[in-house]
Amino acid sequence: MAKVRCAWFDFTSCEGCQIEMTNFGAPFLQLLDHVEIVEFREVMKETTDEPIDIAFIEGSFSREEDRARLESIRERAGVVIAFGACAATGGINALKNHMDMDDYKKCVYGDDSNMPHLDTQKAMPISAAIKVDMAINGCPMSRDEFVRIVTQVIHGTEKVYVPSYPVCVECKLRETVCRYEEGDHCLGPIALAGCGAPCPADGIPCEACRGMVVDANQESMEKVLQENGGMSEKRAKDKSRMFTANFRSDA
């Protein structure tokens, strides 16, 4: 197999997903046998204007000015992969989507909030600007899933199987005791699986960092959060805003 040319690009994000890559162990190093990294700001100075086999795009699309750069990546890339929650779903950036721009700018930047480059639009997945072929979800993206998906892509698989069911499936498969049975709450029933349900296994609720499943039953989730999770109606309603604002029925 010829080496596959890969490049990483970042938009509105904390770059945590790129950092997460540098934390990789053995499977990633093995992957490097098949991959040539041509641009990756977190680990090298070089950049490229050449064609790329796989472009990993991190961060959400939150400024119209970014569209041209996204389009140029799309033109040069064989496969575009949304890399992490911000790129795949808008991620945590979409938290501001239901707020007024002056409000959130003031809240985050205080006295500097009037600087013009801080003007943004709603935080959207990059698929709002360009065609995206695949997504590696999660905040940060899941390393195991990264290796699994990229391995299939470098073998030429065009449609990589990824689950469409909720996190509860993976949670049950590893026989974790449900957070609700421990008197806690959890967004697992509406969260998109693929991560292997590490959070409930560690004794913390799933926050749906990967976004929601396609047919998420949001009404039922609010009911369960109140009846079994002990939340107030308001808290139950707002609970799913952190990572999944763009999925909500009120988005």
């Binding site: 069911y165 909720p166 509860c168 499936v169 049950k172 498969l173 697992g188 029933p189 509406i190 499943v213 047919d215 998420a216 039953n217 009404e219 039922s220 989730m221 009911k223 369960v224």
Partner: peptide
């Protein structure tokens, strides 16, 4: 089935 999450827990256990 109004409140069902299609989570499959009932099958898996």
């Amino acid at each position: 089935s109004k409140d069902c999450f299609s989570c499959g827990s009932c099958n898996l256990v």
